[in-house]
Amino acid sequence: MSGPAVSGNPGDGFFVALEGGDGSGKTTQQRLLADWLAERGHEVVVTREPGGTATGTALRAVLLARRADGDALSPRAEALLFAADRAQHVAEVVLPGLRRGAVVVTDRYVDSSLAYQGAGRALPADEVEQLSRWATDGLQPDLTVVLDVDPATAAGRRGRDAGRTGEDRMEAESLAFHTRVREQFLALAARRPGRYLVLDAADAAEDVQRRLREHLAPLLRSAAPAGARP
């Protein structure tokens, strides 16, 4: 299985997606990356899925809340809701940012559906891919960064995070589920290595960020807006 078809970046911006399992450090890496990009003179759009829009925030509550009655979303309903969030996210946040020439950095994008709903929920891979392609009109990142960490290590991190009030519905899935998700992220990256960067997220956050910046800097030179520092 490969990612959705390319429809080309619609503007002068640059699109980065941070992917990986829950507890892989995406939020920290996104913050550090945004600070660095701003220092270099770029407009930076920091966003996430689900929840990068008002519509997405409402959908996030449905998708991630653990219901007291124990009822669960069906895998297909879950996939459709993630696709709806993504369609609005692209239309309202991602595309406008790229057209302005910004660097858009999103915490999760299409590969999360291919990993979580495709591999994790065992939905037909081609159907999840087709749904994702339709929701985004084929828009894919210029660079996808996979923050790879063993699911058991990631679970330990989440447990030590003082800011958490408990695991959400996706985080609370079994170790076997999160292992399938991890394997799918790595498989997607292996099939298209030119568009992916896989980083060992078990390393210190500063080391992970340094390698990310080293990889990204030459890619941004050709996309730098007027007045941005090299």
Score class of each variant (00 low, 15 high):
M1W: 10
A5F: 05
P10Q: 07
G11N: 06
G11R: 05
E19F: 05
D22M: 09
D22W: 00
G23W: 01
G23R: 06
S24N: 11
K26Y: 03
T28A: 13
T28S: 15
L33N: 04
L37E: 07
A38C: 05
E39N: 01
E39T: 11
H42I: 04
H42K: 01
E43G: 00
E43P: 04
V44K: 02
G52M: 10
A54L: 13
G56W: 12
A58P: 06
L59P: 11
A61P: 00
A61V: 06
A65T: 14
R67P: 05
A68S: 15
R76Y: 11
R76G: 06
R76E: 14
F82W: 14
H89N: 13
H89L: 13
V94E: 05
V94T: 10
G97A: 03
L98W: 00
R100N: 02
G101C: 01
G101L: 02
V105N: 03
Y109W: 05
D111T: 09
L114A: 13
A119S: 08
G120N: 10
R121D: 15
E127G: 10
V128Y: 06
E129Q: 14
D137E: 15
G138R: 05
L139N: 06
P141K: 00
T144M: 07
T144Y: 02
V145I: 15
V146L: 14
V149C: 09
T153I: 11
T153P: 06
A154S: 12
R157E: 06
R158E: 00
D161S: 04
D161P: 01
T165M: 09
G166I: 12
D168N: 11
M170L: 15
E171T: 09
S174G: 05
A176P: 00
H178V: 04
F185S: 03
A190S: 15
R191S: 14
R192V: 12
Y196P: 02
Y196D: 03
V198L: 08
A204L: 09
A204F: 03
E206G: 01
D207R: 15
R210L: 12
L212P: 02
R213W: 10
H215N: 07
A217E: 14
P218T: 10
L219I: 00
R221Q: 03
A228H: 07
R229N: 00
